[in-house]
Computed example of a mutant assay.
Amino acid sequence: MSIEQKIVDSVSSLAQIMLDKQALLATAESCTGGMMAQVVTDLPGSSVWFDRGFVTYSNAAKQQLLDVNAVTLAQSGAVSQACVTEMVAGALRFSDADYVVACSGIAGPGGGSPDKPVGTVWLAWGRRQGGKRARIITKVFHFEGNRQAVRQQTTLAGLKGLIGLVNN
């Protein structure tokens, strides 16, 4: 099965779960450039369970739209556990979503370093608990392939992580 079909299947599964829970989703994306929001909104009827997407490609956008701390970006970088954690917290704060997925990574072909090679992606998932508090889970991935492959793998991993979080 192609990765495109896996993404479509994951969106369908996520949609049913979100509808059953009457929950809302938001995305906070960097390296995917809005791909997660796109695949979700490709599904007719997604407006019932998809609230909004934040595409925060630049560090300035992460700060302005999601309130990511400048110190976090300076000390840890955009491709870090700390950054995606703050992206989830900001997306929950500035949306009506019950669940959020955030990603920041290096899709390539350039931009990598020995510490963070191309294909390094941090993902975070959050669930609103009791008002504005959140439960946030993070994970680092090391994807292979070209820019498109890294972005698609990030999208699929983000969706699968959401399914796991929403099911718990």
Rank of each mutant, 00 (worst) to 15 (best):
R147K: 14
I106W: 02
S113V: 07
G130K: 13
A28Q: 02
V150C: 05
A97S: 08
V8I: 15
Q81G: 07
T155I: 07
L92N: 09
D20V: 07
R128Y: 10
A15F: 14
F54W: 01
A15E: 12
K160G: 03
P44F: 08
N167M: 13
Q81T: 12
G110T: 15
T85W: 12
L25W: 09
G112C: 11
V166G: 05
D115I: 03
D20Y: 09
V48A: 15
C83R: 05
S104N: 01
V88Q: 07
V100G: 06
K139G: 09
G108F: 00
A97Y: 02
K21T: 11
M18T: 05
T72L: 10
T154V: 06
Q5S: 14
Q75N: 14
I137F: 13
G130M: 11
M87I: 05
A74G: 06
G108W: 00
Y99S: 07
A97G: 06
D9H: 13
W122P: 08
K160I: 10
L24P: 09
S58K: 04
G130A: 14
R128T: 11
G53L: 05
A37F: 03
A26H: 07
S95E: 11
S12M: 09
G130C: 12
D115G: 04
R135V: 15
Q64M: 06
Q5N: 15
F141L: 09
Q16A: 11
D67P: 03
A23M: 10
G108I: 00
T85P: 09
A102H: 02
A124Y: 05
A28C: 03
P117G: 08
D51Q: 10
G34S: 02
I163H: 08
L24Q: 14
F50N: 01
L24C: 10
A78G: 15
D42T: 13
G126R: 02
V88F: 07
G158F: 07
M1Y: 13
C83S: 11
A78N: 05
W125T: 04
N167V: 07
D42Q: 15
A91I: 03
G34Y: 02
F50L: 06
F143L: 11
S95M: 10
N146L: 08
V71H: 12
A89F: 03
G130E: 14
L66H: 01
C103D: 15
I136Q: 05
M1G: 15
